Amino acid sequence: MRATILYGAGDVRVENVPDSVVELPTDALVRVTASCVCGTDLHPFGSMRPEDGPVRMGHEFIGVVEDTGSEVVTVKRGDLVVVPFAISDNTCEFCREGLHSSCAHPQAGFWDAQAVEGGQSEAVRVPLADGTLVKLPVAADSALIPSLLTLSDVFGTGYHAAVAGGVTERTRVTVIGDGAVGLLAVLSAKRLGAEQIVLMGRHRARTDLGREFGATDVVAARGAEGVEAVRELTGGHGTHVVVDAVGHRLAYEQALGVVRRGGVISRVGVPQYEEAPIGFGSLFRHNLRLAGGPAPTRAYIEELMPDILDGVVEPGKVFDTTTDFDGVPAAYQAMADRTSLKVLIKP
């Protein structure tokens, strides 16, 4: 079968690998029918050393169950399923608290970090199938597939950012970053009733989609100029919640600049830095809080799916390009060059 493999910075290939098979009684074999490239895939694509590769890529996918281990009971052959980016048993104390991305099971973890296989493949062995997989009530060729695919990561991650920040109908929100997660954080803040949503981004096609998703204001400026623009829009005080959907140090510092006193910085962009100001002059002085982390998307799927099925929201609009496996290397480059927002892969 074919799979996407990253060998080092800028070197992604689609190659033939041994077929995936069920190995443990709790496994399921899933034939992938839709996957995609994630913004977090661009971090290793831009910086991974050759000695750290090769690694299989992909952590967002939908597919059909082809086989199951003897202990799997929640899905069966022929079921169409969505696969969250974190593998979990859905039964441990952390999963019961809605923290599936912190599952305590020894086989739990993230596809890119712990699993041997990746979702940008023709088939995948899914550990802890009963806890991880969620059955979809549509056919594999449904027009809803792009939106349902976002439940595996980006919609759930954007929603987690809003939930962790405590967004309500009385909240003013700033979202830093106009990538797919940032745009779906806008959609999520709108879903939760935010009073004002400021999107900080400079790509017109993306910020236009952000407005469609619910952004009330767009600020293209960055740094001190961007901070000043947000404060002017918010009576000089900043916003109650700031979503960092980027993960770079400059985005965090920008968040510090626009967060309201007593507010929350909710980080879901994977941090690409180890240290950041949290002392008296930054967080402590004005009772600022840090929230966020890897989204437990499994916890949100049943909550968010009905709005997709009923046509209330269409998060799949973040996919602006579709390709097959032959086009995957070009898809990585297009997203790195910001000429594509998010690329859908159909085998």
Rank of each mutant, 00 (worst) to 15 (best):
V163E: 02
E93A: 08
A139T: 10
G263R: 03
T26A: 15
V17Q: 11
V175C: 04
S102L: 04
E71Y: 14
G78K: 06
L6R: 07
Q333N: 15
F45P: 01
L99W: 05
A162P: 00
V134C: 08
A224H: 09
E51M: 11
A113G: 09
R267N: 11
G156S: 03
V167K: 03
A161L: 08
R289G: 10
H240K: 03
G226T: 05
H100I: 04
Y332F: 15
M200S: 08
T74S: 15
D337V: 15
F85K: 06
L283I: 08
P277Y: 09
L148K: 05
M200T: 10
S88C: 14
K342Q: 12
D27P: 10
V22M: 11
M57T: 09
L133W: 00
K342E: 13
Y252C: 10
G98A: 12
D178Y: 07
K342W: 11
S88A: 14
L29M: 14
P18N: 05
R202G: 15
V154A: 08
N90Q: 10
T321Y: 08
R125Q: 07
G166I: 06
E225Q: 13
A86T: 08
G279F: 00
Y273V: 09
T323Y: 12
H203E: 13
E169G: 11
Q196A: 14
A194Y: 00
A194S: 03
I62Q: 03
L136E: 06
G69C: 14
V72R: 00
P18D: 11
L256E: 01
A229T: 11
H160Q: 08
S101H: 02
Q107V: 10
P106W: 09
G238N: 05
F61P: 06
T321D: 06
V264R: 00
F94G: 04
D310W: 00
S147M: 06
S340H: 01
G10R: 05
G177D: 00
R260A: 11
L148T: 08
E225N: 10
V22D: 12
G269F: 03
S142I: 10
E122A: 15
G210Y: 02
